[in-house]
């Protein structure tokens, strides 16, 4: 999903910054507020950030014959919401852009939009909607994060198709034909990885329930009744 340095022409790289910067600023405000009001969540923020760090560094092979990496942002999105996830995502993306020649500074706005904002937003929205239907918690986490991972790569395909429509000018047919080309690379490769990421996130959330369930109630991720039920199922 990393769009490499210089691979977004004007006005697209600027537009994605315009899209991402307000969300990041809002996320920093929310993060500040959360940390000052609920100090006990700080370690969990570190864990969610570290989870993004680990998963986005793992380049995994896919059935299509190429490698890609999970995003790891689903966990943070479910716990803290998409705007705080955007802040955590920026940290990882800047590290990779500056030291790994992976992604870029000019494309940072677009990469944050896909990995830090749109993917996590989908995870958050899905989780909240499915939680209302009393779906099994782990199944909900699995689906929310797998879909978010996949949507991140679909977003990248959209971003590239807008910037590089077939035929040179941005028309519906030019956009669609480019989208098919980019999505063939990104979206198909990502399917097995998205499933793996969803499963891993569900597992790590199980351990969060096990060791620090009070914070989940505090963050409105789960009700205390739901926590009791999940803990009862474990013992």
């Amino acid at each position: 999903m990393h769009i490499f340095e210089g691979f977004l022409p004007s006005p697209w790289w600027q537009l994605w910054f315009v899209f991402s910067i307000p969300v990041i600023l809002y996320g920093m405000y929310k993060l500040n507020k959360l940390v000052s009001e609920k100090r006990e969540v700080v370690p969990l923020i570190a864990v969610a950030g570290a989870f993004i760090f680990v998963l986005s560094s793992l380049k995994l092979p896919s059935v299509t014959g190429s490698c890609s990496h999970p995003t790891g942002t689903g966990m943070a999105a479910v716990l803290f919401g998409p705007s705080i996830t955007a802040v955590l995502g920026v940290i990882v993306l800047i590290y990779q852009a500056l030291f790994l020649a992976h992604g870029g500074i000019s494309t940072l706005g677009a990469n944050v939009a896909s990995m830090g904002i749109i993917g996590p937003f989908v995870a958050y929205a899905f989780y909240k909607a499915a939680a209302k239907t009393n779906m099994n918690f782990y199944l909900n986490i699995f689906l929310a994060t797998a879909i978010a991972d996949w949507i991140t790569y679909v977003t990248t395909s959209v971003q590239l198709s807008l910037a590089f429509p077939t035929g040179g000018s941005l028309t519906v047919t030019g956009f669609l034909s480019s989208f098919i080309a980019f999505a063939t690379v990104f979206a198909t490769t990502q399917v097995p990885l998205a499933i793996m990421e969803g499963a891993l996130t569900a597992l790590i959330m199980k351990y969060v329930v096990q060791v620090k369930s009070d914070v989940l109630v505090n963050l409105d991720v789960l009700t205390s009744d739901a926590v009791e039920k999940l803990k009862g199922a474990m013992s």
Partner: peptide, 18 residues
């Protein structure tokens, strides 16, 4: 298959389109 990065493959798609 070389199992290269999908990010790099997208670069080839860009080159093919533009």
């Amino acid at each position: 298959a070389e199992f290269g990065g999908a990010d790099g493959e997208a670069e080839n798609v860009i080159t093919a389109i533009s």
